[in-house]
Structures are given as structure tokens and as C-alpha cells.
Design a protein around this nucleic acid. Structure first.
Lengths: 346, 346
DNA sequence: CTGAAAGCGCTAACAA
DNA sequence: TTGTTAGCGCTTTCAG
């Protein structure tokens, strides 16, 4: 690969590399005409500053890392897009890593990220007892959690995060189902070691107790966040004697799995079964899918996370206190919950 | 951020940095016990080689770039996943960039990629007269095209690529439609400046002429590859007097847009309108969507591209001739073309 | 306003 | 088997 260095362009004008460097970086102490000439020549020669040399002295990479579940999952993709665009806007590039919700993978990803000298990291798949966070603290690597929270107050205080009001989200969703008269309801949860799943479950339960509904233990299934696993969980539920009239599902992608399982054995949605998801991924609104769900703006979450992280990197956040941003969410009533057919019961 | 250098660990044992470097990199010329001790100490001290220092001397970043349309588009995401996993497997990290099918954006992305010192680039959104390719040639940056071809034989000979048999794909698809008896067929194309769109269109046209079908010029719409644009194109088509009985669409994501447009004005699929897409993205098989389409293994395309690129970077590809891999594709008959209702006409 | 010199952390020649 | 020296390309004192 071709390489033009500041030395090369210094030689052209018989000036020092310092002058060239200063000229090119807009620093003071260079004559106006000299600067102009140098800048022009640099462009003409196709000069590109050497990333490694610069990084070596400045100790900055202008790169951030992002660990998400999996880029082929629509929720992750939308979140990644938010991070990407905000980061780009602020002059940073993004390195993407998939953890597949696996702690060991996450560790590996962070190892690589550290070794690549990124300036900071956005973590979107952290679990409650995630040792990886501690290792970032140790080396004082800036990081921000997105769509996740650490509940342990000892740690939580120091941790920046962008999340959604999951508790309120599923409180709303569960309440909606109760008001429609459902009493035999199932819930398919992601991973109860994760803050979102915990909050969602608690939120739903609050509404359920308000309405005197209880979820039998065999109708509460924790299965991980994938479509495939939710499909299997639904199959298990459908094989029970006490088949529920409604299922609350902690993710639209998972809900699509439930939907497939239902269709496969001839259960009609919403006639025989109401389902409510979470996230409002972009396919949820498609004709024939029309999933009732909770809208969470993944894009904005990602973008906000990137903004927060970069502020932190640049040291513009001198507050000393941690920054916890919680976003609102909205119940989107579509067809899968059957509201358009029955409305609320009195 | 904390920094342990080889100097620090050299000091521990009063040896030179060279010895430490050699020990840590598994190079010969270090005593067995010395090596063991050094490696152990490095681990204990949490040593991480400085990426920038290493890159500066080795001139390798072990990072590759990927330019795709947009990560939130399922086709792109699956392709990116293939690149990501193969690259990771081979010890490379991936930097992701969205071009949104815009040449100017692509140029910007490549500028950044170059400035970050990546070892090579995978391009998935190149158009026929893409000047960006030339600029990569100029600086001798290794690259591979994925899902794209350069048709101009003058250039094409030198260019590595992984693509699908698009011509055959749409030949198959169009033939299928013709055999079902459709005669009034529309086609929604992506961007006729792009190799895939060109090949798809030609392939379809061959089948059409075989069956004596012609597409009236107002039923051939070139609209770009997004769902939204395809939605609008479909609206335009539906407003015509000569409404077609079938539409061939150059992408499943686009097909979903057409589907939405149809449902919105009460056109029933497949009863009133047959549609056939391309790509078989992972939502195409969902109950109620069941899109007839052509399967193209995006994941494999990405992975193969990454493999090819990294071979090239490592100089293992001494063939001197360019490597063009063309993958097969399969027609997946689901419900949107109505085959299950009518089958082939005699 | 300009330049010389030093050094970031690492690897590669070359000596010892 | 080990150490010394030099240098990758850049920025940053500090003199002129």
C-alpha cells in the first residue's frame, strides 16, 4: 500500500516535519501562505496521516466498540444503527461484536476490543453478575450500558446507562390484557439474569396482582431471547391442559416464534390466543403480522448511548456522578391482542 | 487507561525488551524457563500489546472494512454476519459502514476506512461506474466485491468477487410465473446501475421472450432497493389501467413494501396478484408472509468474501488471476405466487 | 514564525 | 541465549 508521510511533503518545501504537522492540523505557528501551500500539496500527494503513528502518540483511536446480541436480530440491528450514525457524526468509528447473549463470548469480544485500543465501549448484553464490567473498571476503560441496568446499588451508582422503562412497559401491557378480560395468561421471559427481563416481569406482575390474576408457574417460561427458543417455549405451553388465552412475550422477535408455533397447530391469533410483544421491531407492523407491542426506540437508545460514551471519552462529562437515562415507551395496540374485536370488558 | 508495557515487564526480570517481545510472541531465541516466567508475569500484570505501536512497525491492523447498504436491512445484516464470523475466526476484526446505496457516502466510508489503516475492504454496494474502486487500486488496497460484479471486461479481469447467479435466479423466477399462465407481469427493479439488477432483469427477460411475454415499459419500474421505495412503486403500478396479475421484485425487503401497498388497497395476494421476491431473508418464511422467492445465501456470501479477502491480504493467493466465485440460487415456492392454488397451466 | 530533538511502544537487525 | 541500537510516523516540548 502506498504511503505518503509528512516527511515527504516536508521535503518538497524544505521545511521541517513539525511545520507540516502544525499546518495540516490547523495549529498556530505557521505562516498563512506556508500553510496554504502545505495543505494543497498534501491533498495533491494524497497524504493520509498514519493512524498508528498518530494513535501511538495521542493515545486516541477515535473508535468505539459495541457489543450486541447478534446483528441479524432486528432489535440489535436497529440499536447498532443508532450507535453507528451518532458515532460517525461525532467523528468516531464503530467496531461491532456479537455476544449471542453468552458471557464467555462477551469476555472474548472485550478482550479484542481492548487490544484494538478503542476509546470506549457500549455494552448491550450485560447480565447482573457480569464480571466483564469489573474488568473494564479496572483498566479505567470508559463504557456505557445500553438497554441494560445493573441493579446492585453498590455498583450501579458508578455506571452510565441508557435504558427503557421496562417495568412500566410491561405493567401497561399486562394491564391491557387484564382489562380485556384475560385471566389465564402465560409469560415467556428472556433471561431472568438480565435487568430488562427482571423489570418486565415485575412490571407485569404488579398489574396482574392489581387485577387478581396469577400466572401458574408452568405458564411462566424463561427461554432466552431468540425466536427459535420462544417457538419451542410456545410449543410447550400449547401442549398443556390449561392452555392460556393470552401470552405476554418479552420481545417481538420472540413473539414471531410464538406466532409460528401457534399457526403451526392451528391456533388462531387473536381469536384463540392474544399475544403481546415488546420492542416494535420494524416488521411488527406488517400486514398480517400486526403485533400488539411496546414501542422502544432502539435507534435512539443506541444514538444516546454513543453520545453519552463520547462525552465521557472527551471528558466533557465532569459531573462525577453517573448518568442514567431512562426512555419512555408506548403501548402500540395492533391486532394480535384482539382489542379491535372485543375492546375492554366492563 | 492503564498501560503495562514490555518495558515494565522487562524491568521485573532485568532483561531487555527484545527478550520480552520475543518471549511473548513465541519467537525463538529465548530460554525455556525465561520464556515461561515472562509469559506468566505478562498475564499477571495484565499486559496488552499496544495496538498502535505494533501496527506502526508491522504495518498490519488485522482489521478489515465492510461497506454494505444498511445494517438495518435484513439482507445486509445477514451478509455482515457472515463477514463478521469468518473474519473473527481468522483473527480479524470488522469495521462496518453503511453506504445507503449512495456513491458519495461510499466514498466517505472508504476514506475513513483507509485512514484507519485497515488491511483490506469488502464492498457490497458497488455500482458499475464506481470510481471508488479505482481509488483503491491506486493505493493498492486489497478488496473484494460481494454481491456485485463489474461488467466492464477491461476492469473486471483484475477484480475478485463473490456473487450469485442473478441471471439464472430471475430466469427461473420469471419462467415460473410464465408457466403459471401469467401474461401481464410487472417488474420492480432496484438500481439498473448495479450488476445484480442488470443481470436479474436480463435473466427475467430471457424467460419472458421464451414465453412470448413482454413487459410494457410503464410496468417496469426502477426504484432503488428499499422497502419504502418499492411500496411507492407498487402504488404507482396499482393505479394503472393495465394492472398486472404478477409482479417480479428484485428483493424480499422490497417485496414486503409491495405487499403492504397491495393490502392497503385491498388487493389480495396471491388471489388477485402474484408476487415473487429475491433473497429469502429470514422473515420471508413467516406464516402469513410466505413469500415465493429465490434463496441466496447471504451469510455464505459474506463469509466467502471475508475468506477471499484475507487470503489476499496474507498473500496466500499468488495465482495472479482474479478469483470470481459465483454461488447457486434456488427458487423457493411459497404462497405469494399462488402456485399452491393453481399449479402450472397446461 | 520555524526547526531540532525527543519519545510514544514495539519489532528487527545486528552484536555480544 | 541475550542485549544494543535504530527506526516505524507522528506530535510535542523547547530553542532559536
Amino acid at each position: 500500500m502506498i504511503k505518503v508521510t509528512i516527511k515527504d511533503i516536508a521535503r518538497q518545501f524544505k521545511v521541517s516535519t513539525t511545520t507540516v504537522s502544525n499546518a495540516l492540523n490547523g495549529k498556530p505557528g505557521v505562516g498563512k501562505t506556508a500553510r496554504k501551500k502545505i495543505v494543497q500539496m498534501a491533498k495533491k500527494m494524497g497524504y493520509q496521516p498514519n493512524y498508528f503513528a498518530r494513535g501511538l502518540v495521542s493515545r486516541q483511536s477515535y473508535a468505539i466498540g459495541l457489543t450486541i446480541a447478534n446483528i441479524s436480530d432486528p432489535f440489535s440491528a436497529e440499536l447498532a444503527l443508532g450507535v453507528y450514525e451518532k458515532a460517525n457524526e461525532l467523528g468516531y468509528t464503530m467496531m461491532l461484536f456479537n455476544t449471542n447473549y453468552n458471557l464467555g463470548n462477551e469476555t472474548k469480544c472485550l478482550e479484542i476490543l481492548k487490544s484494538k485500543g478503542v476509546d470506549g465501549i457500549i455494552l448491550a448484553t450485560v447480565t447482573q453478575d457480569d464480571s466483564n464490567i469489573d474488568s473494564l473498571d479496572e483498566i479505567q476503560m470508559p463504557y456505557v450500558l445500553v438497554n441494560r441496568l445493573i441493579l446492585n446499588p453498590k455498583k450501579a451508582n458508578r455506571i452510565d446507562s441508557v435504558s427503557v422503562d421496562d417495568y412500566g412497559s410491561f405493567y401497561q401491557a399486562a394491564k391491557h390484557l387484564c382489562r380485556m378480560g384475560h385471566q389465564n395468561i402465560a409469560m415467556i421471559a428472556g433471561d431472568m439474569d438480565v435487568s430488562t427481563a427482571i423489570a418486565l416481569t415485575h412490571g407485569a406482575n404488579e398489574a396482574f396482582t392489581e387485577y387478581g390474576v396469577t400466572i401458574p408457574s408452568d405458564l411462566f417460561i424463561e427461554c432466552g431471547f431468540s425466536r427459535e427458543r420462544a417457538y419451542q417455549a410456545a410449543k410447550a405451553i400449547f401442549s398443556k391442559k390449561n392452555r392460556p388465552t393470552a401470552i405476554l412475550i418479552q420481545g417481538d422477535n420472540m413473539a414471531l416464534g410464538v406466532r409460528e408455533a401457534a399457526y403451526e397447530i392451528g391456533i388462531k391469533i387473536p381469536d384463540d390466543l392474544a399475544i403481546v410483544g415488546l420492542d416494535d421491531i420494524n416488521i411488527s407492523s406488517l400486514a398480517g403480522i400486526e403485533l400488539t407491542t411496546i414501542r422502544q426506540n432502539q435507534y435512539k437508545m443506541g444514538a444516546t448511548g454513543a453520545q453519552l460514551l463520547i462525552n465521557k471519552i472527551k471528558g466533557e462529562d465532569h459531573s462525577g456522578i453517573s448518568n442514567k437515562i431512562v426512555m419512555e415507551s408506548d403501548l402500540i395496540i395492533r391486532k394480535t391482542c384482539g382489542f379491535h374485536l372485543k375492546g375492554y370488558v366492563k
